[in-house]
Amino acid sequence: MALTVAIAFHGFNQSPKYGSVRPISAEQRPAALNQKDIEKIAHLARLEVSGQECAAYAADLSRILGLIEQMNAIATDHVAPMAQPETTPLRFRDDAVTQNGDPERLLALAPASAHGLYLVPRVIE
C-alpha cells in the first residue's frame, strides 16, 4: 500500500507534453482505503490515529490515490524513468574532516541525555 508513494514519485514529474490525460474508468479506479489500511499505514509511520481521524484520512488518502491513478494512466512508455527532477548532477566532496559540529551543543538540544548519550524511552529488542 505505502509503495504507491514511491510509484507516485517516479511518475510525478513528467511533463504533460509526453502524454495526454485519459479519464479513468470505474474498474481502473483504485478501491477506496478502509479503516484497516489506514491503521496499517499509521503503524508503519508510527503515528497514532484515532477512529474518527481514520475515516477522514481514508477519504483524503483515497482521493490522493485517485489522482495518482489518473497520472498512472498517462502513456509514458517512451519516457525514460526519472529518479529526480533536478538536472544538475550530483556533486562530490573531498574526503576530509571539515566539520565535527559542536557535540556538547548538539547534545544539549535533546530532551534527555546522559553520559554523552541521547536518551529515548527504552526500546525492547
Binding site: A112, A114, H115, G116, L117, Y118, L119, V120, R122
Partner: peptide, 10 residues
C-alpha cells in the same frame, strides 16, 4: 547504559 532508558550513540 542508563536505567530504564535506551542510550543512543550516533
Amino acid at each position: 547504559a542508563v536505567d530504564g532508558m535506551t542510550g543512543v550513540d550516533l
